[in-house]
Design a protein around this nucleic acid. Structure first.
Lengths: 198, 198, 198, 198
DNA sequence: CATGAATGAGGCTTCATTCAT
DNA sequence: CATGAATGAAGCCTCATTCAT
């Protein structure tokens, strides 16, 4: 049966649609009222009952995680994947990290909420392209060899912190400074002593 | 105005004592129940009424700020001041930052609360010795010249983030890794491009 | 109506199987999470949808009733029937009541749930052997004549109460004390005034 | 300062008044909507904020306990104390228990709530006169010696159960029957074997 | 000036139950 | 006839903060 006209109320489809709606609503609510958003507000925005929300996502924390993950997957990862592609491996890593933080900066409150909930690292872990970029840069001798892909979420969290902590008018700029500092520390260099273990 | 009659002075002293007690209680409460501590709990521990607490400090946030500031001033600054004193300017900066973060790590929950409340930078700003160490390291040619003392609180906040985000069993270790990375990026080096502005 | 075609009979069997499964799941769920069990949990354990459960049993309360009834019928009644059989009529009543409460004690949470839902008496009413034992004991002159079989569920509920109210380490013992008291009061005795009416 | 005219708004007095009001409201709410009453409803009836209620009583359970305790202390104990006073020790015990259960029957839903919350025994423990009556009856040789005052709350709970379980039109009568049974079992008698331990 | 009782708003979460498929 | 997604209504509880004493 092809999709006919009119309401076409399917249930499975509605469920999926609700899923998306809730995630959108979460993003919007956080964007508007900040990391202290209320779960009830999200449900209201999504046009579903709170219990529906709780059926899919078990808790406020998981909701944040899911919203941030989808954001990371759908909006960040593609940009990063694109940024990473380039002839120069080091520049690929630089561009990838910049793209990452830039994308996060676009939804800073969501990032802050994820930070508050302690789920940044979880979600960010899904961005594999960065890890590959790191490896390529290491193989090319540009990045110091004692970094690991597991460090990347931490680095990103550190930079995100600088956005969270300084929400002034120039908040959109300062993070570049500290990312640059981290990157300079991440280059291969003869004077570097091995990094302490994780 | 000379110190006049007895009672007035006694009151002043009592007030001061209350002030200290409240700050102690804040530190203790946060240490025990974490950043989600309750103001009432602080008042109870301090042996004062909640309203008294609110008379002295205007809000929960200001209370955190004050507690963290006193902690920074009384417990962190001295250690840092001592650490900074050394013949080698660069090592002085390194030791100073390490001492800072180490001291913060000792009261990680308080640091986390300050982070949550967004007052880390405010309080940390009071630690001047680090700024002087930075300048000395820059004058000696060891530290890159485009860093400023205002960067230091940010760097510290970044490292504190790695403690907050990874409260696992090795949480006490990982921060060293990222501080090292930041320090490697902070060294003077011919290959460094100028840092983006703050 | 003779057993007709296959499929119909298969469906009936499946329905029956579901019925049993749900009742088992109810017993298990209550045993694990106590009288505050959730209907959804029962459905999940039974491997059926919640709506299916609601089609067969009208409400949570009816579900408890049904589970307790089946428990009473299948697991308690046989034990009681066996216990009642003995040469001495009074001892038969004593043993029967002890067996009853003992069986209930084995599934105390289910009994408690039935108590909470107010359906103990309903279900217990199905245990006729006790009534017969009472009559035999009365005919033999051992039990006071003004008791009736309708009193038995009440007596049992009273003893079950002592299990519910005292869930301490010796909860498994105390009920014997109060059953003994009730039994001593149930013996025929010249000093007994007639019991007030039900 | 004598109590003047008008509102006379004292704070300490108001607190005390609120305390009483909340307890009254609890009694009323339970009487109206049953043991499943809502704490919010109690607060509304008492004309106080929910938080006020929670400041005094820590939890729903404690609220029930307090309401039942006050009821027991203020309304039950005096009646019992009066009932117990009589020349015949055994009759004193009988009358005391009857008065107890009778008083409970007047607020059966409150008793049921206390039963549900498992706090009957706690509160009932405050009714010492019954214990004294038991001892007097035992010293007079009327009551069996192996009963202890700690048994009394249990006996009462058992009888209360018969009220809870049979809320029919004759609910007000049946309990007498079972109390009589318990009492007959509580008399001293040569044929009694010692009660099993608690 | 300290007290602490009172507030009001809101937070998260859970359940029994009913539709639409 | 079974499914399970969705519901709506509560429920309990906590907190930062402000009056009245």
């Amino acid at each position: 049966m092809p999709e006919s006209s009119g309401p076409a109320r399917t249930l499975r489809a509605d469920a999926r649609r609700n899923h998306e709606r809730i995630l959108d609503a979460t993003r919007d609510s956080i964007a508007e009222v900040g990391p202290g958003f209320a779960v009830d507000d999200v449900a209201a925005r999504a046009g579903v009952a709170v219990a529906t929300l709780y059926r899919r996502f078990g808790s406020r924390r998981d909701l944040i995680r899911a919203a941030f993950e989808r954001f990371a997957t759908d909006e960040v990862t593609p940009l990063v994947t694109a940024a990473v592609r380039g002839p120069d491996p080091w520049q690929g890593l630089v561009d990838g990290l910049e793209a990452t933080v830039l994308a996060l900066a676009g939804n800073a409150p969501l990032a802050a909420a994820a930070q508050d909930a302690g789920v940044v690292a979880d979600a960010v872990r899904f961005m594999d392209p960065l890890g590959q970029a790191l490896r390529r840069a290491q193989e090319g001798g540009a990045a110091r060899p004692d970094l690991t892909p597991d460090d990347l979420p931490v680095l990103i969290a550190m930079v995100v912190t600088t956005m969270v902590q300084y929400p002034g008018p120039d908040a959109g700029r300062a993070w570049r400074r500290y990312l640059a500092l981290l990157l300079d520390g991440s280059r291969a260099g003869p004077s570097h002593r091995p990094l302490p273990p994780m």
